[in-house]
Design a protein around this nucleic acid. Structure first.
Lengths: 226, 226
DNA sequence: CCGTCATTCAATTATTCCATTGAATGACGG
DNA sequence: CCGTCATTCAATGGAATAATTGAATGACGG
């Protein structure tokens, strides 16, 4: 009864993958792992969850072939098994975006009226950077910045945006980015900067998508994840 | 406790979509619905499941924004809510294909050595059809054929392939297609035709993908789904 | 070889999900 | 307005999943 016919067995395999994506914590894990390889405890800290719980979710993801684990000393680093995982994540997000009014409601409720917060495209940003017209800030924590960031970006973790902006030239546009299209940090950074009178926009998506688009990434070699 | 912060609420919405994809029956439902709008009882018959069970799974899909329901008299016709659903399905399938050795094993075990079963691409087929070089058969049941098929295709339901092929010209290549990339019917049709000495290949993917690629679809207006 | 530390395993409870059953709804046809 | 039929609802029992706890592995450093 477990396998009635090969067709159903295939659907069962597909269902395993989808089921593995069917938990908020695991989706959040994927978004973090998409930034680069992470250890269990680093992920547990980011998600503010017990290590054992995260370990089990990671194993669920591994069983589904979504992430892969590499042992390095006493640490186990998890990374995405394949770029196809990002597109599956994006596709699920796409369905949710298009179909669920709930998502709209949440986004709007949280970010007030952000109609004029049209993001900067990657192409646009490259032109603006080449011409020196904008300041690009990476509002992720320092450890994530160190593991890879857009060339030319300055690391300004979200908590330091306000202080940093005091020294920024008013009038010069600021572009902020963070982990991905649904990472709230760049939204918050832009909102804060605007309330202080700066011209600020978000970069579309975030770091993993930048990398996935085949664009160059810069890393800081001698800073370890904390 | 239900909604801790907006970010988590978003992940929860994404998880709802993924979870809805996380069941073999629901995936099979999606594949059928992707062919065109279907009633509950028609789907229940295809999947050989009790109507109530199918109804509940359909409602789960509807809650996730994956399918939409339209009442027509005493029938309720379900259809895909959006083309993005197909890409989510494909993305999940992509992860499973790339990552799960299990899938490989199942496919290989069932279809023997089908290394030389390279499918015909849609572009290739259009050329072959224009030049009149191949016979195209649609091996889906007649009701699905009626609702939309590739122009020029002949409907030869799987069970009739053997009988039909007796009248087919030996030497003329036959191309078969069915519901989609994991629909086993076209595999079986090709295997049967080859064992009878015909040259036969599969079309890549199937009907919904053909339609999604923007290619023309022909319908038989006066045949209703049974 | 022993202590430490990151990770995993095992066992528990609470929760959610799934299939089935039988009854309820809602629309058509007479 | 009543019977019929497609669909949905409500309730049940059984299975799978999730979070927690505490113990077990496995590798490094002395």
């Amino acid at each position: 009864m477990s396998i009635r016919n090969p067709k159903q067995a295939l659907y069962e395999q597909f269902a395993i993958v989808a089921k593995a994506l069917g938990h908020p914590l695991r989706l959040e894990l994927i978004e973090h792992i998409a930034q680069g390889a992470r250890s269990v405890e680093a992920l547990a800290a980011k998600l503010e969850q017990p290590v054992a719980n995260i370990s089990q979710h990671l194993q669920a993801l591994r069983r589904a072939g979504i992430v892969s684990a590499d042992r390095d000393g006493k640490f186990v680093h998890y990374s995405l098994a394949d770029a196809s995982v990002l597109s599956a994540f994006a596709a699920v997000r796409g369905v949710a975006e298009r179909q669920l009014a709930e998502v709209d409601r949440i986004v709007r409720g949280y970010f007030d009226a952000l109609d004029d917060m049209r993001p900067v495209t990657r192409e646009e940003l490259q032109t603006l950077m080449r011409d020196g017209l904008v300041t690009l800030i990476d509002v992720r924590p320092a450890d994530e910045f160190a593991l890879g960031h857009v060339p030319g970006a300055i690391n300004v973790p979200l908590g330091e945006v306000k202080a940093w902006s005091a020294d920024a030239t008013v009038g010069r546009e600021i572009v902020a980015y963070c982990r991905g299209p649904w990472c709230v940090m760049s939204f918050e950074a832009v909102a804060a900067l605007r309330s202080l009178g700066h011209a600020a926009r978000r970069l579309e998506d975030g770091m993993p998508e930048w990398q996935a688009a085949g664009l160059p990434v810069e890393a800081v070699a001698d800073i370890a994840a904390d």
